[in-house]
């Protein structure tokens, strides 16, 4: 997944400028940044939901020519349910994650895939329930099953854990970690929850109108660009990461820690 000099504006208001990065297969990228920094817009550009300037390639194919959408799973920030009662079961919602084809008949193979994805997100018991009647957290897990049902190689998630309780959130991130480590699924995840996700993420991307930082977790902790951009909040974000581990991700080799530059729980 590659972006080269990508730009986007709403009218004359620039949202993203000169965005370039290269996400490798197997990466688990945590996208962080302030509200209004362009994180969601960036994901929409990658998915072709917004059209900007610059070049985006998916699986080495320029975005306009990309057709293998089943290789990409997507989970949006907001549940799509409107005020109207959309009479569709959770099972049918998950089915929408498979490549859409003509006709209305659902094959046995498709149903098996749907049930396997629901099993993975522990939503199999809601298969026949009207999606609208599920709680927000249950809906979010069903939507994760929809994102997973096509067995994607890349998962793009926009703050997926906001509506989840603590237990579901833990299960959610464990599952994402498992998909990344055991199945090699590449993940791009917008999150404000650096503490919870920190133990799984391999790279951070800090987005604030442009990509301020993109690198490993260890580089992030000691990045001058991040420190300059975030000011006092940099330490807070880094502490969040370290709190979770109880030690600096660089361990004894961390010169910053050895010199005691960082405070708080920075071990």
């Amino acid at each position: 997944m590659r972006a080269e000099n990508v730009r986007f504006a709403y009218g004359k208001t620039p949202v993203l400028e000169n965005v370039s990065f290269d996400v490798q297969a197997g990466d688990y990228v945590g996208i962080i940044g302030p509200n209004g920094g362009g994180k969601t817009t960036l994901l929409k550009l990658l998915l072709g939901l917004e059209k900007g300037a610059g070049k985006i390639s998916l699986f080495n194919t320029p975005l306009p020519a990309f057709k293998d959408w089943h290789k990409i799973g997507y989970l949006a920030q907001k549940s799509p349910v409107s005020q109207s009662r959309f009479p569709i079961s959770a099972e049918e919602v998950v089915l929408m994650g498979l490549p859409q084809r003509l006709g209305s008949v659902v094959s046995v193979g498709e149903l098996k895939q749907v049930h396997a994805a629901m099993q993975k997100t522990r939503t199999r018991q809601y298969a026949g329930t009207i999606f609208h009647d599920l709680s927000i957290g249950q809906q979010q897990r069903v939507l994760l099953a929809r994102a997973l049902v096509s067995r994607p190689e890349v998962l793009i998630l926009d703050e997926p854990s906001t509506a989840l309780d603590a237990q579901s959130r833990e299960m959610f991130f464990e599952l994402l970690g498992e998909l990344n480590k055991q199945h090699g699924v590449t993940l791009l995840l917008i999150t404000h929850d650096t503490g919870e996700v920190g133990k799984h993420i391999s790279k951070f991307m800090y987005v604030d109108k442009t990509v301020v930082f993109f690198g490993t977790k260890e580089e992030f902790c000691h990045s001058a660009a991040v420190a300059k951009h975030l000011g006092p909040f940099a330490q807070h974000t880094i502490d969040h990461l370290h709190n979770h581990h109880g030690h600096c991700p660089l361990g004894e080799s961390c010169e910053e820690c050895a010199h005691g530059h960082a405070e708080g729980n920075h071990a």
Binding site: H70, M96, G103
Partner: peptide
């Protein structure tokens, strides 16, 4: 309806997601 049933339901339920499925 018969031919495009799945496209229509998908596009009605969640238009952006339907777009990412190639609808």
């Amino acid at each position: 309806l018969k031919l495009f049933y799945r496209y229509l339901v998908s596009a009605c339920f969640d238009e952006p997601f339907a777009h990412t499925r190639g609808v």
